Amino acid sequence: MIKISQLNKEFESRVRLGIMSVLMVNDWVDFSEMKGLLEITDGNLASHSTALEKSEYIEVKKEFVGKKPKTSYRVTQKGRQAFNEHLDALEKLLGR
């Protein structure tokens, strides 16, 4: 039997769950696109993406396109594995 404590605390936030869900099915997603998809503020996306980056679940790429800064995200292999384990634990918890 699965215990709720086996769920990954890093994915408890709906924003982090959203970031990971988007990145699991896309290669690189830029800041503006992610912000629009999740309907969140700049600061909210920045703080949650920083937390996921510190856990090494996502990679953040910052570059300049012309003279404009561009931030993009992608899931790491560690992040992909952790998120899949989290989803598996959720399914078991729900009895599926």
Rank of each mutant, 00 (worst) to 15 (best):
L45A: 08
T41I: 00
L7G: 10
V65H: 02
L94D: 06
S49C: 13
S21P: 00
E91A: 13
L93V: 09
E39A: 15
K68R: 15
E56R: 08
S21Q: 13
E33A: 08
Q6I: 01
E33Y: 00
A46C: 02
E59P: 01
H48N: 14
R74E: 03
E63F: 06
T76W: 05
T76C: 04
G66N: 10
D42S: 06
S47G: 00
R96K: 14
G18N: 14
L23W: 05
P69N: 12
Y57T: 02
G66V: 05
V15Q: 10
L37K: 11
L23K: 00
L94E: 11
F31T: 03
E85I: 15
T50N: 10
E53T: 01
M20E: 03
Q81N: 10
L23N: 00
K92D: 07
L45Y: 09
M20K: 04
Q81D: 14
K67W: 02
L90A: 14
E91F: 09
V75I: 15
I40C: 11
E12T: 09
K35E: 11
K67Y: 08
E12R: 13
S49W: 08
E85R: 12
M1F: 07
E12I: 04
L94M: 08
F64M: 14
W28A: 03
E91H: 10
E59M: 04
Q77D: 15
L93R: 08
I4Q: 07
Q77N: 14
D30L: 00
L38R: 09
K67L: 12
S13T: 05
I4K: 08
N44I: 07
H48L: 05
T41L: 03
I2F: 10
